[in-house]
Structures are given as structure tokens and as C-alpha cells.
Computed example of a mutant assay.
Amino acid sequence: MAKATKNGSGGAVKAYLVAYNTASYVGWAYVLLQTVLYLAENGTNLDGLFDRIGYLLIYVQTGAAMEIIHSLVGLVSSSPLTVLTQVYSRLLLVWGILYPFNSPDVRASYGLVLMVLAWSITECVRYSHYALSLLNIEVPVLLYLRYTLFYVLYPAGVAGELLEMWAALPYAGAIRPAFKGFLLLNMVNYPPVLYKLYTHMIRQRRKVLGGGAKASTALGGDTANTTEASKKKKKL
């Protein structure tokens, strides 16, 4: 498997991964900033939210499809199936629902707000953490947030995604009944998939942060060096 090393082709891989994670962070940070600014300016009037962030959100999220390729060709050590599971539902949301359905029920909903905030906060932390780790820069707060925020953001994001799918059902059915059935099937699959991803992150948190004194050491002591080094090959 390809590794990001300091010399040779590994150095090129590392430079590419740093650039990819940095660009992804910038994109998600801009989505988050524009969402927060819109809400501050307009409150609960969501009619213009999609016009403000919608297409940027679609393109930034589509960039995550590269992570599937990264895992398939061995640039990172993540399971391609796990990465595909995480990316698939989001691509379905942006290209299968947000892009085709120009309706306030879909594009001006609280589900969209919940989904976008959960996604963007998660990805800002994740991508910045990975980019800095590849550069051997340790930020204990980012490490902690990376393996803690999911407790809240995963359920929040899933709730937003399900609300978006539910809102899209009538419009999908108008296009083709099979499309509506496809969305319903995806909604039914959410609980087991969420359970799998949630428990996976809990295991990762225990592995990285540990508990008690071990967690404190990982956040500020010598163990952090070993932890960060071991995570350079994790999913980006």
C-alpha cells in the first residue's frame, strides 16, 4: 500500500494528501461560514439558503468521492467499504435530492440546516486534523474533537438527512414510483448503518483517546506522538 513518506513517491503522495485535505477543509469552512452568516442575517427565513450555499455544498461534498479512490488504490488504510458507506448517502442527498428538487420543502427546510451544520462542522475538524497530522503538527484539541463531536453530530446529521429524504418523497414519486421506493429503502437502511458507523467511531475513540489517565496523556503527553503517527494512514 502507498504511504506518505518524506522521500520519493511517498513524498508526492503525502504532498497530495495534504493538499487534498487542506482544500477540503477550506471548502467546508466556507460552507459553514456562509451558513452561519445567512442564519444570522435571516433567522428562520430559509428561502434563500440554498441559493447562498447549495451548489457550493454539492461540489464540496462531491469532492469526498476521491476518498473512495484513495482507499481503493491504497493511499490510505481505510476500508473501501466503510468509506463508500459514509460517502454514498451524502452523494445521494446532494445529487439525488438537493440538485433535482427545486422546492422549498427540500431546499428551505430545517432538515437542510441541521444536515449542513452537522456535515460542515464534522468535516472542518476532520480535514484540518488529518492535514496537520500529515505535517507532524499535533493539535490536542482537534484530536479530542475529532473523536468526540460525533456523539452529537452523527445523530444530528442523520436526522437532517432523513428529514430531507422524507420531504423529497412526493417529488421523487412524481418522477417515478421506483425512485420513491429507492429513497424509502435508503431510509429504512439508516438505523443499521448509523449503528455500524457509530460503534466504529466509539471503538476508534477508545483506541486513540483511551480512558482516564490514558486519555489525558493522549491529549497532552508523550502518547500523543504515537497516536498521531499511527493515524496518518487512517481514512481521510
Rank of each mutant, 00 (worst) to 15 (best):
N136L: 04
V73E: 10
A64P: 08
L84M: 14
Y147G: 10
L112N: 06
W166Q: 14
M115F: 13
K231T: 13
L32W: 04
M66S: 13
V76K: 15
K180D: 13
L219P: 01
G96D: 03
T85H: 01
S78N: 11
L98I: 00
L143T: 15
G63W: 14
Q61V: 15
Y20R: 08
Y55F: 11
Y147N: 11
H129R: 11
T82E: 14
L169C: 03
V158W: 03
Q204A: 01
W119S: 11
K233C: 06
V36A: 05
S120A: 15
T22W: 09
Y198D: 10
Y55Q: 07
A167W: 01
G157M: 04
L33V: 05
G111R: 02
I137W: 01
L93W: 02
T223Q: 03
C124I: 14
Y55A: 04
S133C: 09
K214E: 11
E123P: 12
M165V: 02
S128F: 04
G221L: 05
H70V: 07
G157D: 01
W119Y: 10
Q34Y: 13
L134Q: 15
P191C: 06
A4I: 00
G10S: 09
V60P: 08
G48I: 08
M1T: 15
G211S: 12
I53Q: 05
G27P: 14
L184E: 03
G111L: 05
L135F: 12
L236P: 00
G157S: 08
S133Q: 05
G173C: 02
K14N: 12
Y195C: 09
L92R: 09
I121R: 01
S89K: 07
T217P: 00
A65T: 13
V125K: 02
F101L: 00
A213C: 06
L84W: 03
M115H: 14
I68Y: 09
A224P: 05
E41H: 00
T122V: 06
H200Y: 15
L185Y: 00
A19F: 07
P140T: 03
L75I: 08
P104E: 08
Y88M: 13
S230V: 02
D47K: 15
M201Q: 15
F182P: 04
V31G: 00
N186A: 01
M66P: 02
S230Y: 10
K6Y: 10
